[in-house]
């Protein structure tokens, strides 16, 4: 179908933002795993990585640094699988040197995000996940401003259990309210660590903060994902964790969250 005349998101059924006020809580991890889970359940998925200063998704999906091609409809996204079910766009693909710092102030970041939203030829997608940097600033405002023309289903908020993180996520909830973004649910990441030697569970970053926050703010609690060295290692190597460890409790946690989210989106 010729999409050049129309917006690049016209054939995208659902757009979901992955947000968190706090850095390093697992936004990119959750984005990646949700995308993989959606794909395993037969959906076509796209990931737009708008973390311009610290793009992590290309590594987590081990797509390397392919060149981004142009077609009539815009930039062709990079596919993480041969079946082309998982499409990805990130600033990581546009950098010559992976260690180069993107030392940009807001206006420049906003301009690139505008292009990312309008010029990527996603084609047909069931879900587009938008991975964001921490905070409530330029990137978030710009991505929303640009997505407004289309449709945003809502946001998944990621937090770790400790109060220092849920505090930042409360601010993100305020951001969602002020900008009229529906909160699809809260995910608690890094929730408890089970020692592989003795099976003792240690709550390294406390426990239950995500669920509490969901209650406090009247949001849906989607579930908690434990700290799992196998998950961190898989993301380091860009391996599909869900395919590699279907027996683990982390697998169950992630697929349950993905299922709930998907059925909420598609209902």
């Amino acid at each position: 179908m010729d999409t050049s005349e129309r917006g690049s998101l016209d054939q995208v059924k659902h757009v979901v933002l992955v947000l968190s006020g706090k850095g390093g809580v697992g936004k990119s991890t959750i984005t990646t795993e949700l995308a993989l889970a959606f794909r395993h359940s037969g959906r076509k998925v796209g990931i737009l990585d708008v973390d311009l200063c610290g793009p992590s998704i290309p590594r987590m999906l081990r797509v390397g640094k392919p060149e981004v091609h142009q077609c009539d409809a815009g930039w062709v996204p990079v596919y993480a699988d041969p079946q082309q079910q998982l499409a990805l766009m990130s600033i990581g693909f546009l950098m010559e040197d992976p260690d180069e710092a993107v030392v940009w102030r807001g206006p420049k970041k906003s301009a690139l995000i505008g292009q990312f939203v309008s010029d990527v030829a996603w084609g047909e997608l069931d879900v587009l996940l938008v991975d964001t940097p921490p905070g409530t600033s330029d990137e978030h405002l710009s991505v929303l401003e640009n997505l407004r023309k289309h449709k945003v289903d809502g946001a998944v908020l990621v937090t770790t259990p400790q109060a220092v993180s849920t505090g930042d996520v409360r601010r993100e909830i305020t951001f969602c309210k002020k900008t009229d973004v529906k909160i699809l649910g809260i995910v608690e990441n890094m929730s408890g660590f089970v020692c592989p030697h003795c099976s003792e569970c240690s709550n390294i970053f406390s426990k239950g903060g995500g669920e509490e926050l969901a209650k406090l703010t009247g949001s849906v609690f989607l579930g908690s994902v434990p700290l799992d060295p196998l998950l961190t290692a898989s993301l380091e190597e860009g391996r599909d964790f869900l395919q590699a460890f279907p027996e683990s409790s982390t697998y169950t946690a992630i697929s349950d969250i993905a299922k709930t989210l998907l059925s909420n989106l598609e209902s």
Binding site: F193, C195, P196, H197, C198, E200, S202, I204, L227, P229, T232, A233, E236, E237
Partner: peptide
């Protein structure tokens, strides 16, 4: 690294793969 408070074994939760 994380030292389990029970068995004192160290786990690399965020493994230094590189």
């Amino acid at each position: 690294g994380f030292v389990c408070p029970k068995c004192k074994n160290t786990s690399q939760i965020f493994p230094p793969t590189t």
